[in-house]
Design a protein around this nucleic acid. Structure first.
Length: 601
DNA sequence: GTGTCAAGCGCG
DNA sequence: AAAGCGCGCTTGACAC
């Protein structure tokens, strides 16, 4: 019989891949009996050694003890780093953070102390006390006196076991929720391995790019000074003055909170259209903004990289309300692309990321997954728009019919216009499905006022199920407070904003699909390549996989097997599809990877 | 100096 | 009546 025991680590900070270390741990059993151990200070009463910890962890592997953690990925990483060996794969464990995320996705906080306060009225004052010491000593938790720290540690372990006793029975009561929970636990372990491996940048490329941009920023500022007649910062308050007083441009939009005239990119682009060459300062502002932002981000990549140029990000496998993953330190889910529609001065930041020596990177993404999931849920809730399903069968473009409706002359446009229009219409399609009103749809699709109402009506009539889904889901939110994914996961939304339902449902389902795909791919790669090919990153609908060049002759087979596993979801009543690209030089230059003919230089 | 908020922007 | 959504990071402004 295994014993449940809350387990909480104390560390010098949160950046475990950049030097922070575990210095203590605490436990608490179901009776509330808490114990604390200090690794760093052997003069303390509750001292413990690395051997003690190792022996304790042996009991996990032997399944004598099942540790319960709040954000297990963190505690397990800290413990593994301290012991210098992997343990997560060998143990059973629980995670009260994930339990909370699953049971109430829209809870305002899933922090340990907040939950214990909300659910059990356990006061949070111990945190403030410890923080006082930390602040006074300008140091980390290891500087807090033993007695204070002991109380604090014991408190967290107690909170953790209480949360487990409260949450877990609710999860266990529903087989689908249990399955969702187990999937999340597995994802946490897979994610640990991704963070550990990290992703490599080419620091020389990065530095060169930064200095290039810095030179260009100088030039822009010089040019602006000449035009304006004095040095200007091209940002902040001075920018508002420059645009709306010095140049007296019309105020097209105001910021929502403070009501200042907006200087957003989209507004500047509109102003460009209106005044054109008469105001050369607009382009300078856009360049300046993009490039200063770009250099800052690129510099942060350099700062995060280790001695070998590898970045180990912090990935939260369930960081968003919708169950999506989030990524920080740095955020590798928003690395700028060099070619983006509607961005005149992009930063080619993806050039900086490279495959490790001896590897290529495969990028496998779900194609059109949001659209496909929308159609799946239409089938469940609002019916079947035959036109759209036919396109799915023929593997065509689901946004094409809307292009023809919003722009009847669509077919006669040239290629590049078609591309621009399609992007706009695609966004309008999503906006519409996700509950946007006619005004917003017209603006997104770029329709002039005189034709918009009529064409939007035609669009609504053409896809009754697609357009009608939002209404059904809204009603569900109002009636019961939640909607449910194909996996049985409940997605709660505020009844004041029921229109969020469609977006939440689709985004949550896509997140679950990706995480399950990730688990399955990880397992497969372990077995099929002995862990030589590995997942490096996941970005909402995409997996980045590094693959050893020595195994390239097998790659076609392996990627094909992977692809099948990624789309294997019998409960989803529409076929899913993945596209594969391969990058040999950097993230920017990836080319289609055709499973029929494989040639990699 | 440190922390917080708003604006803005990158990705999906 | 009207309503797309989710993140993290940087800058600039302001308060403590």
């Amino acid at each position: 019989m295994s014993r449940l025991l809350a387990y909480d680590t104390e560390t010098t900070g949160l950046q475990l891949h950049r030097g922070d270390k575990m210095f203590a741990w605490s436990t608490c059993d179901e009776k509330g009996d808490a114990k604390v151990y200090r690794l760093d200070n052997q003069s303390f009463q509750n001292k413990a050694s690395k051997l003690d910890l190792a022996a304790f962890v042996e009991d996990w592997a032997a399944h004598k003890i099942i540790p319960i953690m709040h954000e297990a990925k963190f505690d397990l990483t800290a413990t593994e780093k301290f012991l210098g060996k992997r343990i997560a794969e060998d143990i059973k464990f629980h995670d009260t953070y994930l339990q909370s995320r699953i049971l109430r996705n829209n809870q305002s906080s899933h922090g340990l102390k907040d939950l214990a306060y909300v659910l059990a009225e356990i006061p949070k004052d111990d945190e403030a006390l410890v923080k006082q010491y930390v602040r006074r000593q300008k140091s980390d938790f290891s500087a807090v006196p033993e007695d204070v720290m002991t109380k604090y540690q014991a408190g967290d372990a107690l909170r953790t076991i209480l949360l487990h006793l409260f949450f877990y029975p609710k999860i266990k009561a529903n087989l689908q929720w249990l399955d969702v929970y187990q999937s999340e636990l597995q994802t946490a372990v897979v994610t640990m391995r991704m963070e550990e491996r990290g992703i490599m940048i080419d620091r020389n490329v990065c530095r060169t790019l930064i200095s290039q941009l810095e030179r260009q920023i100088e030039e822009v500022l010089d040019e602006a000074a000449t035009i304006v007649g004095k040095p200007v910062s091209l940002s902040g308050r001075e920018l508002i003055w420059l645009l709306y007083q010095r140049y007296n441009l019309p105020i097209l939009e105001k910021t929502p909170v403070t009501g200042e005239p907006s200087t957003e990119k989209e507004v500047l682009m509109k102003l460009k259209e209106q005044v054109g060459a008469a105001c050369p300062i607009l382009d300078l502002v856009l360049k300046h903004r993009s490039w200063t932002h770009g250099t800052a981000i690129l510099q942060s990549y350099l700062d995060y990289a280790d001695e070998e140029g590898v970045i180990h990000p912090d990935i939260n496998p369930c960081g968003a309300v919708t169950g999506r993953e989030s990524c920080s330190h740095p955020n590798l889910q928003n690395v700028a692309k060099s070619r983006v529609l509607l961005n005149p001065f992009p930063i080619p930041a993806r050039r900086v990321f490279r495959p490790r020596p001896g590897f290529v990177n495969f990028h496998i993404d779900f194609s059109g997954i949001e659209m496909r999931l929308l159609l799946h849920y239409c089938l469940i809730y609002s019916g079947k728009d035959e036109i759209l399903w036919k396109i799915v069968e023929e593997d065509g473009d689901l946004h094409y019919p809307a292009c023809k409706i919003f722009y009847p002359e669509f077919d006669t446009f040239d290629k590049s216009t078609q591309k621009t229009i399609r992007t706009a219409v695609k966004n309008a399609n999503f906006a519409g499905a996700y509950g946007a009103g006619d005004t917003k749809i017209a603006a997104t699709a770029g329709l002039p006022d005189n034709v918009a109402p009529q064409r939007i009506k035609v669009w609504r009539d053409a896809f009754p199920a697609f357009v009608g889904l939002s209404k059904v889901l809204r009603r569900l939110i109002v009636q019961q407070g939640f909607v449910e994914t194909v996996f049985g996961r409940r997605v709660f939304a505020n009844t004041q904003t029921p229109y969020i339902a469609t977006n939440y449902l689709v985004q949550t389902t896509a997140a679950e699909v990706l995480k399950r795909a990730k688990n399955s791919v990880h397992k497969y790669l372990e077995a099929a390549t002995n862990g030589e090919a590995r997942i490096l990153m996941s970005i909402h609908d995409e997996l980045i996989i590094e693959y050893p060049r020595t195994r390239l002759s097998d790659s076609k087979h392996i990627i094909e097997e992977l692809s099948w596993r990624m789309i294997d979801f019998p409960n989803i009543r529409i076929p899913l599809k993945v596209d594969t690209k391969v990058a040999t030089i950097n993230w920017e230059q990836s080319s289609p990877f055709d499973l029929k003919k494989v040639v990699i230089k």
